[in-house]
Design a protein around this nucleic acid. Sequence first.
RNA 1: CGGGGCGUAGCGCAGUCUGGUAGCGCGCCAGCUUUGGGAGCUGGAUGUCGAAGGUUCGAAUCCUUUCGCCCCGACCA
Length: 486
Amino acid sequence: MAENGKITPQSQDFPAWYQDVVREAELAEAAKVVKGCMVIKPHGYAIWEKIQSDLDRRFKETGHQNAYFPLLIPMSFINKEAEHVEGFAPEIAVVTHAGGKALPEGEQYCIRPTSETIIGHFFSKWISSYRDLPLLINQWANVMRWEMHTRMFLRTTEFLWQEGHTAHATHEDAKDEVIRMLNVYGDFAQEMMAMPVVRGIKTDAEKFAGALQTMCIEAMMRDGKALQAGTSHDLGQNFGKAFDVRFQTEQGREEFVWQTSWGVSTRLIGGLIMTHSDDTGLILPPRMAPVQVVIVPITRKDAEREKVLPVVDGLFRDLKARGIAVKVDDREGKRPGDKYYEWERKGVPLRVEVGMRDVDSGTAMTRLRIAEEKQKIAIDTLATQIPGILDDFQQMLLARAEKFRDDNTVTVDTWDDFLGVFQDGQSKFAWCHWDGTRETEMRIKEETSVTIRCIPLPGQGPAPEPGRCIRTGNPSAGRVLMARAY
RNA sequence: CGGGGCGUAGCGCAGUCUGGUAGCGCGCCAGCUUUGGGAGCUGGAUGUCGAAGGUUCGAAUCCUUUCGCCCCGACCA
């Protein structure tokens, strides 16, 4: 990690670069005093709020309501669904003492690693008739998973997320919900975060503990590794049976509900960083930027301030009226260059400089975060142009990310080629044939630490065509996405 | 859980081998000069040297114990 004020180049050490950007953009810092936890600082939290508000709108548009369930879950709940316990037991934190006394083993709680169990408990109380279905609930919450290795935003002991939990009368309805919410995530990632994603299905080995099937969106980071950016699970009747969530059908029969759950977390912020940013620091797509435009007035003497500041203020008001998140950096005692670097580190998409020269000529200097050169624009047309400039920048970042991903995506047919693509810890997206067995998947993972990220949904990968498994040569029905993963 | 590293000013570190009473850079504060791509000068403030115990005239430094954090290897959004 570089010293304060410096960012290690991506090409030199990608993990160090990432840590440096997180620090220099003032997104978060390691809590240190609490193992594996982080403090999300105002600028980082503002990005989370952007994510929250847009997703929340999308959830409401698809008929969901927010609710809140307890942080503590009785241990007995966790133990009810066999695969669920097995999957989460190693990373659960347990409350063993409370009120100054040790709690008897049967009365201990765990801090939620996810809420399927406690929500299942309440669903069983709330649901009795097909008229109660579908039940579409979302919760914004923190969860805790005792991780061995933590990385800011990508994997921390405590993290913020949303978890959707729904119950349906038929498996078909539940499956529709799973894909609907996967698409909400995918659309959000592309439209708002300018982060292209592959939508697919997890293999059994990678699916959520307790689910029938897990769907996911996978994004490519700038080091070629894959980031699972969101998941949507078909829980079948597993939790319905474990928590006795039954309803009466129209015909009067008793049946277990079909459930789904889906979530995205503060990990998305890590994805945002590693999709767009560069050696200067954070780069934010305008729709995710807490500050979209920063105006830096350049003034030397009081006489200049009197002329420059009114122009700046007019521009500020005009932009604000158009719904642009604009900030004027009129701090004294900092030089303009210092301010430029600071806002570039923090990922502000567009900077506007206004000094005496500009006031005299009726222009302003502007610089897009990734532009080589500054551009001179007439002040009286600037405010009307900026929404379009930001929109173009949003599209530019998406196109750039798509190009990067496509340039680093390969189709691989032989094991030798596969080893070549992933040698020395390198990663790309590799479309490969796989024989569909867990044994082969595990074997490849052990030999190379490369994993199957997903089986692509229609249109998300190469058209299905029969072939031979890259490792065993056994028959394969289609290609799967393989990569190193975060 | 195994292997390695580190705890000294807000941050990053030197000092530890060879004990002698606390230092550097950045940041911070004040003032002046500066201000179109990371300012300069002058002055100033800041430390239970991770904790506890021991050895010693004297411990950041040696010994013992202990706590915490970080990095690397088996699980995970």
